[in-house]
Design a protein around this nucleic acid. Structure first.
Lengths: 241, 241
DNA sequence: GCATGTATGTACGCTATCAAACATATAAGC
DNA sequence: GCTTATATGTTTGATAGCGTACATACATGC
């Protein structure tokens, strides 16, 4: 029977999918820490000494351009891990990771993740499959950035984020949403206004609530469904090993 | 001393980086095949029975939307491999791979690549690092799609492609370039016209030549340099093992 | 209650890109 | 040579999103 602590670890989908023996081995080194809004988890080109398994926090992977413009390439929550470079071999990545919605995460030393990866068990398979899912999210974001309107992208972002929070409320200002989408704040005001007057969402000073998820799903571009389906296909929802 | 055939295998940077023993083991199964223009190497969601190490051909990874619009997320040439799903664990990906510039590639059965990957030697390390480099290219494409103008994106695409061909001439019509960039053909006509009248490139019915590479590099957005630097950092140029 | 900072709303002109239609030029086959 | 298909060039108008400026609304601290 799993301990209370193990149950808490289960709040993250990747940890939950690990076999009990592996989880038991890692659990002494998994430290539950607070993830405050705006905290920069990792900067472009700098090594990650720790990796993070979010539970009820949301982390954006951003690419920041020289002129200060930026765009989110992926959103990571309780389905994933922030920090693939320790096991992929590069040591660093060119992305920046920022906490978009405060909460908690389990932190692990990058070196320990790397060691666990190279023990070549289920954890290795899982992390590789996760990396492929992440790659799908990034690719679909690239296409969505090219072809879809801001309103649809906002819908995609709302759905992906609420999925990863397991909540229908997000603590984000329109300005911070504009930053992750890589558009102007005014465009978000406009798109969010449309969605609100149509009754799909409500928002008020930094709180956005998806009140009619079905209709948001009806309005979002295909990109959301493709990413979601690929995560479902590649990652087990429960422990399977 | 390497055989003539081994020298030919060296035309691909990944194969070249492998230790001689690994290359010798794989070489009986590596079949040099023609890559005709427009050939679809892999479709979204379909398994790859073979993977490809291009030598003088170029393959685009495309995402095709339901309405037929598409965008390239990465361009693969003699620096890489087409087909990471066999070893990443997903079996399939949601991308489509199309030959953009005809030439040759070494083909290998996906299962053999998978087996070689799980022998856990230098090839595994190399493929993981390559996957990370590919991920960087895709991410940077996402940001570039968001923030940069078509002319800069065209420059990026020209430089990335000619790097991967080891040639300054590309066999691509403006229409096919528009398809991979995910923009209209007229925009490519305009951008390419500007570059030609400035003396950076010349083109004529499906042949584009970069005549003044330095000045194209001066006009391209930072995205090209970042991707190039990351490939150089992550992948050895010569055999290192 | 009032001042201040922050979040959101609105309006203006500007530009890149889209959409569609059509004109011209080159290559390839007969 | 001529025909046809394909590649490139040009025009016109529409629109999404940008940049800037400013107005309003709400929250917090005093």
């Amino acid at each position: 029977m799993p301990s209370a602590e193990a149950l808490k670890l289960h709040e993250n989908r990747l940890l939950r999918a690990l076999p009990a023996t592996e989880l038991t081995r890692l659990s002494p080194y998994l430290k539950r820490i607070k993830m405050p809004l705006g905290q920069v988890i990792c900067e472009s080109g700098k090594p990650m000494y720790h990796v993070y398994f979010p539970t009820n926090s949301i982390v954006s992977l951003l690419y920041v351009l020289e002129n200060g413009e930026s765009a989110e390439i992926a959103v990571i929550g309780n389905e994933g891990i922030v920090g693939i470079s320790p096991f992929m071999g590069g040591g660093t990545t060119t992305s920046t990771a920022v906490v978009q919605s405060s909460g908690y995460a389990y932190r692990l030393e990058g070196q320990l993740l790397k060691d666990a990866f190279w023990r070549a068990g289920p954890l290795q398979l899982l992390l590789l499959r996760y990396t492929q899912a992440l790659l799908t999210q990034i690719s679909q974001t690239a296409v969505c950035n090219r072809h879809h309107r801001v309103e649809q992208q906002l819908c995609r972002w709302l759905l992906l984020s609420t999925d990863r929070l397991s909540s229908n409320e997000l603590s984000m200002t329109q300005d911070s949403i504009a930053n992750v989408l890589g558009v102007r704040r005014e465009c978000v005001t406009l798109a969010a206004g449309n969605l609100q007057s149509a009754g799909l969402i409500t928002y008020k000073r930094g709180k956005i609530t998806v009140v009619d998820r079905r209709r948001v799903e009806a309005r979002v571009c295909e990109c959301y469904r493709i990413v979601r389906a690929e995560f479902d296909r590649l990652l087990p929802k429960q422990q399977v090993f």
